[in-house]
């Protein structure tokens, strides 16, 4: 295996285009242990962290641009970003230990295509977009469309993720993400739930987006929960409807981390709590 550290998107593209067994990486948190355990090595490991654009965190006024390899510790440590998108910032901060936080990135979390990725539901409720570079230039698609199944993405040969774009929330809008793990740290999410809500001045919900992680092969949007919220206040009734809809939207598996019944039940609980937390953030005028 050869290590390469290109300094531009174009250079990375040409390395990737010339070799079908080449692989890009950012944090390498999966790549290095896999190689050590004797799994086949890529021909070239292309380190994206020397490309400035992929390590950036840009405030564009109405939106944020996050480099695909930007460490999540840079997001959680940025007050303005965390103030605009508290749920996404919190989700990004849940990826592994402090050690991992200096390597993990939204791009890596997304392109690993784990059903349990913490940041992906939070990106999805914020309608984040993925900017993908390929031989024919770049294309931009919704983050929700990137992952096609466990371990697989829609990225074609020679393509790689360059950055994530997220619009700042409109007025009276905020987000939240919660996950269930058996310990307090260091676990993979058994269930994750993200919510973004908009409330009018009288506290009625005018828009809502809810997404679940680790309960299906890919992130699940819950339109029935969103419908149940819009048009009324956040109440015990609407939250119960959110929980029921979230549980119903799950298509989980039994595995070493949780059972089907458990995931279904807790998805409802976390969806409800995430809505409540996002609503509280709106009422508190932003980040809570």
């Amino acid at each position: 295996m050869k290590y390469a550290a290109p300094t531009s998107v174009e250079e990375a593209q040409s390395l990737l285009a010339g070799d079908a067994d080449a692989k890009v990486f950012a944090g390498a948190t999966d790549l290095v242990p896999q190689m050590r355990a004797g799994r086949p090595e890529p021909s070239i490991a292309i380190d994206l962290k020397k490309i400035d654009r992929l390590m950036a965190l840009g405030d564009n006024g109405g939106s944020w641009t996050i480099g695909a390899a930007t460490p999540t510790s840079s997001l959680t440590g940025n007050g303005a970003f965390s103030g605009d998108l508290p749920g996404l910032s919190y989700a990004a901060g849940l990826i592994g230990s402090d050690q991992i936080q200096n390597r993990s990135s939204l791009g890596g979390n997304l392109c690993n295509a784990s059903p349990a990725a913490d940041s992906v539901p939070a990106m999805v409720v914020n309608d984040a977009r993925a900017v993908i570079a390929g031989a024919d230039g770049t294309r931009t698609i919704p983050v929700a469309d990137v992952v096609t199944g466990p371990g697989s993405t829609c990225l074609g040969d020679g393509e790689f993720l360059v950055e994530i774009e997220v619009d700042k929330p409109t007025a009276n809008t905020s987000d939240a993400y919660l996950r269930m793990i058996p310990r307090t740290e260091m676990d993979i999410a058994v269930v994750g739930a993200a919510a973004r809500v908009t409330l009018d001045d009288s506290g009625n919900c005018t828009a809502a987006t809810i997404a679940l992680g680790a309960v299906a092969p890919t992130v699940v949007r819950v339109p029935d929960a969103e419908t149940a919220l819009v048009g009324g206040p956040i109440s015990d009734e609407s939250l119960a409807a959110v929980a029921a809809a979230a549980s119903a939207a799950c298509n989980p598996i039994d595995d070493k981390r949780g059972t089907i019944a458990y995931r279904r039940q807790v998805a409802g609980v976390l969806a409800k709590r995430a809505v409540l937390q996002a609503a509280e953030r709106v009422q508190n005028g932003g980040a809570a």
Binding site: M186, D187, K256
Partner: peptide, 24 residues
Amino acid sequence: YIHDADGRMENSSFLDYRIPVASD
């Protein structure tokens, strides 16, 4: 310990064999 039906251990790492961490 979690084994699959063939008797192979499924959680042979500190990620999934969950010993307490400081924040617990």
